[in-house]
Nucleic acid binder design. Structure first.
Length: 424
RNA sequence: GGACAGGUGGCCGAGUGGUUGAAGGCACCGGUCUCGAAAACCGGCAUACCGGCAACGGUAUCGAGAGUUCGAAUCUCUCCCUGUCCGCCA
């Protein structure tokens, strides 16, 4: 969410940022309307408060007169009349405020200056690591997974539907091993606080991280209880400190949590959905950081490095892609995607998305810090990244580690977790 | 799920319709005192919005929302949360 004052005073800058996302045309009317509503709103506020001040004065006069045993009928009548005016003005105000709020929630974050303008085609590979394995002769992971008895897609579909996976035997062990490896790495070596969070979240939490109101149809909802299944642990982790003020000395704060993630993926059937590529429920270790504003750019690099470290330990070749403005998510100001190469499907798979949300989520969720010098509370900056999402990692491992005899060799660092160096 | 009791400032805690944004205490910050510290004493210490260059002024906020009233932390209703007991239960 944007600051109203910034919207008013820096409308030009905001429009430029939206232009780089390719959304200026679509969103300009929203900005114009918001600025107009803001003006209306402020003049109404003045009118209301003027009357409230007058009413407060009259009420005290009533109290004084009554205490003195005098009649206060005149004051009471005047106060009543003011009350009626106030009620009228307040309903105008509520209408303007309501429209303004819903408009503000529709405006995406402004991207940072070093984010390239344009759409997906302007995404930039900033670095890569490892050598992608030649694709020839490598079977896709769904074949290997089925042959080795690691993945049971038909029975997953029987239980919950297409896009729900059953991992079996060493496949289930692989899931557990990967989660433990990631959590151990981030908590012991990267300094994150290990966290276990609810996978259901309410509307306020979902709005704080901006899953709502825009993406309601992408989530599973429990309508009787007004709860949603989280699409990522970003939601609970970022809402940990919703409506709180943190001492500056506590920043940065960092949290790592495993959670299952639920995504309806409405409308995305047919494209890259085979096997483990796109599923409705998957496991992920999520990293969230709360940072000082002037540190968030550096923190994004740090966070991305933490996620990369997992891929290095897993010996999976990957590249780091700086998303162009038009491909950057709604709430994000800058995003790096980590893509790992899967030779069996011959594709780079997105396994992590690391973003700096600047104060966009903090403003929505009202997460602030009090500066060490005792000044006014300021919004923190929030960041998050997957570290990492499992199914595609498993796909990459099954394809990358394939041996001529059909077995799968596991990376060194994973072996102590899986208690085996090879899946057969 | 049922019954009862509660939700007041960073914390504790007064306050059942009228200068209560809110007594008092603790914590914290500044000062006096002291060689220094402690104690004591004095002062300060919420957030948001609106107006103003500013000084400052105004409005709102006592779990949330709605209502009654000239006026609500105080009365009514709905909801949320916490505690205790009962029921149910992995």
């Amino acid at each position: 969410m944007h600051d109203l004052r910034a919207l008013r005073e820096q409308a030009v800058e905001l429009r430029a940022a939206l232009r780089r996302r390719g959304q200026e045309q679509a969103l300009a009317p929203i900005i114009d309307r918001a600025v107009q509503l803001d003006g209306d709103r402020r003049s109404t506020i003045q009118a209301v408060e003027e009357r409230k001040a007058a009413r407060n004065t009259l009420s005290q006069e009533v109290a004084r007169k009554k205490k003195a045993g005098q009649s206060a009928d005149e004051e009471q009548a005047g106060s009543r009349a003011l009350g009626e005016e106030i009620a009228t003005l307040e309903s105008e105000l509520a209408a303007a405020q309501g429209e303004l709020d819903s408009l503000l929630l529709q405006l995406p974050n402004a991207v940072l200056a070093d984010v390239p303008a344009g759409g997906e085609e302007s995404n930039t590979v900033v670095r890569s690591w490892g050598e992608p394995r030649a694709a020839s002769g490598v079977a896709p992971h769904w074949e290997v997974g089925e042959k080795l008895g690691l993945i049971d897609l038909p029975r997953g579909a029987k239980i919950a539907g297409s896009g729900f996976i059953v991992f079996r035997g060493a496949g289930a062990g692989l899931v557990r091993g990967l989660l433990n490896l990631m959590l151990d790495l981030h908590t012991r070596e990267h300094g994150y606080e290990e966290t276990w969070v609810p996978v259901l979240a309410n509307r306020a939490a979902m709005t704080g991280t901006s899953q709502l109101p825009k993406f309601e149809e992408d989530m599973y909802a429990l309508s009787t209880d007004e709860l949603f299944l989280i699409p990522t642990a970003e939601v609970p982790l970022t809402n940990l400190y919703r409506e709180e003020i943190l001492p500056e000395a506590e920043l940065p704060k960092s949290f790592a949590a495993y959670s299952p993630c639920f995504r309806r993926e409405a409308g995305s059937h047919g494209k890259d959905t085979r096997g483990l590529l796109r599923v409705h429920e998957f496991d992920k270790v999520e990293l969230v950081r709360y940072a000082l504003p002037d540190r968030s750019a550096a923190e994004l690099e740090l966070l991305t490095g933490h996620a990369e470290r997992v891929l290095q330990l897993l010996e999976l070749p990957y590249r780091v892609v700086l998303l162009a403005a038009g491909d950057t998510g709604f709430a994000s100001a800058k995003t790096y995607d980590l893509e790992v190469f899967a030779p069996g499907v011959g594709k780079w798979l997105e396994v992590s998305s690391c973003s700096n949300f600047t104060d966009f989520q903090a403003r929505r969720a009202d997460i602030r810090y009090r500066p060490a010098d005792g000044g006014k509370p300021r919004f923190v900056h929030t960041l998050n990244g997957s570290g990492l999402a499992l199914p595609r990692i498993i796909a990459a491992l099954l394809e990358h580690g394939q041996q001529p005899d059909g077995s799968v060799l596991l990376p060194e660092a994973l072996r102590s977790y899986t208690r085996t160096d090879r899946l057969t």
